[in-house]
Simulated assay, not measured.
Amino acid sequence: MTLAPRVLLGHGTENDFVVLPDPDGTVWPEDRLDPALVRRLCDRKAGLGGDGVLRVVRSVHVPDAPEVLGDDLARCEWFMDHRNADGSHAEMCGNGIRLFLHVLVTEGLLDRSTCVAGVLVGTRGGPRRVGATGDGSYWVDMGPARPFGTGEATLSDQTFSGQAISMGNPHLACLTDVEVDSLDLTAAPGFDAALFPDGVNVEVVNVLQPAAHIRLRVYERGVGETRSCGTGACAAAYAALVDGGATEGTVLVDVPGGRLSVEVTAGTTVLTGPAVLVAAGELCGEWLTG
């Protein structure tokens, strides 16, 4: 185990991550990458800073991979070991998994040409197929949006009704005529804990063009407001389509960090957008042992 392990910094539409290359699971085993260290890595003043941590590791080295992947374990060579900024495990992240594939390509662990048709990657939300586009972006098959009721979020002393949607993780997508940029998302929104016992990502959404173009902001559980959320974009796009009387379609999603495209079909949801590596380096021994 090296004292100065390599780290990468990257983002997908400014949803940013500390990325830890660990193909063989020897540098960041489960007992080393504990919640306290994740919080230190994500600290924007005393650490590297990020909305979360992505460990790039083969599935066979992840203790809970057999449980979450089941019969698909053998088909998923790679596992996106994703932690929220508060140190908790996260099921799925559409921005993170695009960056994850970008790292596999740039690190020489996969050839980009073999990724056009998509490769299966393990996550705690189950296997996800993610691939490369001809223009340098990445797509990910997020699976179907699964509505499971309605609820309310309270923020900025206002109550917003929304649709509860699972994208492998829980969302409350609130369509509103209130300008989303006017809302204060510095504090966690209130929500129905009975409907969301494990917490929830809350999206506030303006529909710019019915069933075709939306703008959103998001408060992610375990993180706070982020510049983008891939699963949130999918949940919001689905909610906008349903609100407009459609069940399928392609929606442009503007987030503070850029633009994503979400295609909703009868059987699945495909998210497309950029992934960018910003920096590469090593963690200093004095910080690790401090």
Score class of each variant (00 low, 15 high):
Asn84Tyr: 06
Thr247Lys: 11
Asp43Ala: 10
Asp43Ser: 11
Ala266Val: 02
Asp34Thr: 01
Pro274Lys: 02
Val140Phe: 07
Glu220Gln: 09
Phe196Asp: 13
Ala117Arg: 13
Asp243Cys: 02
Ile97Val: 03
Ala4His: 07
Leu241Thr: 02
Gln209Asp: 15
Asn169Val: 01
Gln158Trp: 04
Gly199Lys: 08
Ala187Glu: 15
Gly94Phe: 07
Cys284Ser: 14
Val19Asn: 15
Tyr138Leu: 14
Leu8Glu: 09
Val218Asn: 11
Leu20Arg: 08
Gly126Lys: 02
Ile97Pro: 01
Gly222Phe: 07
Ala145Ile: 01
Leu110Tyr: 07
Gly151Thr: 00
Thr226Val: 04
Leu195Glu: 10
Leu101Gln: 09
Val276Thr: 12
Gly52Ile: 01
Asp51Thr: 00
Val200Asn: 13
Leu252Glu: 15
Arg259Val: 06
Val178Tyr: 06
Gly162Ile: 00
Leu104Pro: 01
Glu225Phe: 02
Leu241Gly: 05
Ser228Gln: 13
Leu277Ile: 06
Asp16Phe: 04
Val207Ala: 12
Cys42Glu: 03
Gly190Glu: 13
Thr247Cys: 10
Pro274Ser: 04
Glu286His: 10
Ala280Glu: 15
Gly151Tyr: 05
Gly87Asp: 14
Leu185Ile: 01
Ala239Gln: 08
Leu3Thr: 05
Asp181Ile: 01
Val57Glu: 12
Glu107Val: 00
Val253Ala: 14
Asn206Gly: 04
Pro170Met: 01
Val56Asn: 06
Val207Arg: 12
Leu216Asp: 07
Val60Asn: 08
His89Thr: 05
Asp135Trp: 00
Gly94Lys: 07
Val57Tyr: 08
Val119Lys: 06
Leu8Pro: 03
Arg6Ser: 14
Gly52Asp: 08
